[in-house]
Design a protein around this nucleic acid. Sequence first.
DNA 1: GATGAATGAGCCTTCATTCAT
DNA 2: GATGAATGAAGGCTCATTCAT
Lengths: 208, 208, 208, 208
Amino acid sequence: MRTNQGFAGDDRGTFGGRMRRAQIERAAAEVLSEVGYAAASVSRIADRAGVSKGVITYHFATKDEIFRRLAVQLLDGCAAHITDRVPDEMPPALRLRARIHAELEYFASRRIEFLAMAEVMANHRDEDFGRAFEGIAESDIDTVAGILREGQEAGEFRPLDAHEAAHLIDAAKNGVLDRWAADESLDLEPMSASLLDFVARAVRADGA
Amino acid sequence: MRTNQGFAGDDRGTFGGRMRRAQIERAAAEVLSEVGYAAASVSRIADRAGVSKGVITYHFATKDEIFRRLAVQLLDGCAAHITDRVPDEMPPALRLRARIHAELEYFASRRIEFLAMAEVMANHRDEDFGRAFEGIAESDIDTVAGILREGQEAGEFRPLDAHEAAHLIDAAKNGVLDRWAADESLDLEPMSASLLDFVARAVRADGA
Amino acid sequence: MRTNQGFAGDDRGTFGGRMRRAQIERAAAEVLSEVGYAAASVSRIADRAGVSKGVITYHFATKDEIFRRLAVQLLDGCAAHITDRVPDEMPPALRLRARIHAELEYFASRRIEFLAMAEVMANHRDEDFGRAFEGIAESDIDTVAGILREGQEAGEFRPLDAHEAAHLIDAAKNGVLDRWAADESLDLEPMSASLLDFVARAVRADGA
Amino acid sequence: MRTNQGFAGDDRGTFGGRMRRAQIERAAAEVLSEVGYAAASVSRIADRAGVSKGVITYHFATKDEIFRRLAVQLLDGCAAHITDRVPDEMPPALRLRARIHAELEYFASRRIEFLAMAEVMANHRDEDFGRAFEGIAESDIDTVAGILREGQEAGEFRPLDAHEAAHLIDAAKNGVLDRWAADESLDLEPMSASLLDFVARAVRADGA
DNA sequence: GATGAATGAGCCTTCATTCAT
DNA sequence: GATGAATGAAGGCTCATTCAT
């Protein structure tokens, strides 16, 4: 007898299986974005996906796994998108700008998924109640800090604590995404422009 | 129909009653900060407070009311703190700086409460799943936008979309608080300095 | 230290005590008539009486005691009212009519109390879930059966099973009271007339 | 929002599902008849049915729904039984008699269900505490009133207020059923005969 | 692969009752 | 006499998960 434990986090499996998992993940994202983490029950997800509750347990070991995958996939996709679009050779100021722009661009077509991911990252905890996504953005921030340091050496950026500034840039960017995602009537384009302008001014060298 | 139990939203009541309510709110804040919104059950709060579950229902009509009060009290306290410390006569650049500093200062001695409030604001929903604290910071942000416009007229600040910039400043500030609150080992002072510097640079006029 | 057990079912006590008990009983009757047995909680009764919950426990050993007293008092009052108004010397047909009329008349000015009593009698159970007011009307019905037998001997009433007929008369009378009590807009007078007519016809001897 | 659990009001579903629901309804009826409305908890019903509490929530949306179905099914079944057995062409006096007889006959083999239904009808309230089964018998009574009027025109019945008389007949009939159901040792047959006789006498024309 | 059924722990809340003051 | 406070059991219900078919 084949146990369903084997499927957990498994990207192998039949084509149909992958399809089903994708369908369930999509439903989960919609439910999360609409009713929030606390009310996102397996029942509601099954309803939304138009399948029985059993199907979900068959394809995912636990509910948490669905949520985790949702967040991880989006995070990974975003990272790949950025890497694709931001060559290492770009000068620092442009590279910083390109990274931020690429991230906003990535989520611009994934509002629901972003909201779902935000719910998961804010609420997902391990069994000891520790935040499961604590520090997930750290490497990203380190990359930005690196760019800032590079730019300082090149004289493009002013003296500042690169690590702190990277966090501030990240927070401002997340603020833009959060606000945009929460209000469907908002247009990301001008918000994005204001953000890029704001950040550029905050870090540029005096003579620049 | 009002029963003679439950002081829901009642600021009157005996000294003992106010004490108990404060004790329960404190326990609720601790639990929220430690295990998160989803796991913050009445049982856990009662355990933490060292009282029976019934006591909580006796003093608060619903669990949500405790959470709401927690958030509202802190928000109100913070607003009062800022108003006290930031006279309207201050010139815009100083006023902006003073506001941010006052807010960070207020939460610096209320880490647990800040975490609890953040959990509540991120998760509290009304019965139709709408975010209950949606737009709660809007008036605050409008105030900052007003300061920015004033500063622009005075030539202290550069041309920018005041409303967008106010949101970016808010997001950066919240990012600092979130990061600090999540990691007990962090020192708010230097983070605060970086933030103030970052914001000042982002908005100052070219000639300044 | 004086325990409150002593008061249970106690008609002695101070004047103030009797007043309080009456006030509580009145409130209990109102609550019962408005929300029904299941929702008639001590809290709601205390609210209605404008006293604290503690007062109720002070004057009555248990909630059930209040309810029991409510029913018993009304039942006793009704019995006394009937006895007062229906002399044993009346001829059977008149006596039957007078009894029914007296009972309707008694409750006519006690709608709330009647509803409360009906709730209690329908729902009150002892600790083994046996109906506490089972057979409470039996002696009344026996009295009516006696009148029927007397009337048969006197040739006023037709041959019939006196005990069964007494039950049927009782049921018809209760039906009138129930319907009237449930609908404030109803006028008891014509209903009463129809009932008396109905019963008289049902039992009268052929030649009468 | 409909979850995929709960068949609330659903007559479709698998054979097994219908069986379970019937089993649960049977257990609920037994519990209601034995301990009364107030003590008829989901736990007790589950115990009686020999299933876990969760099963009940799985098959019925709420406890009230079980009770409502219990009452409605019995009421509907009774109405159908009467319609089947009482042709419209019968002369009024016979038709009246046949209706009453059919109803008693229907419940004669359903003592437990009758008791359960009586508990529900006496106690079920909507959220504003209004009686949920208020006036449920009204159409039935109107039918009887119609028969009485027909019989008056045909000279079979005496002049009387048909609507009032119909209510009295209904009350007498319910009295018989209540008494019989409450006492297992009673034989419905002679009670039924007395009732039919009583009613016939009460309404017949003088010359009949 | 998929499903409906079942479970049992846990949730929030209501409640009758006890008790110190 | 009276009160507010506290208790703990019980209530109905939701839910993630398991499992036989």
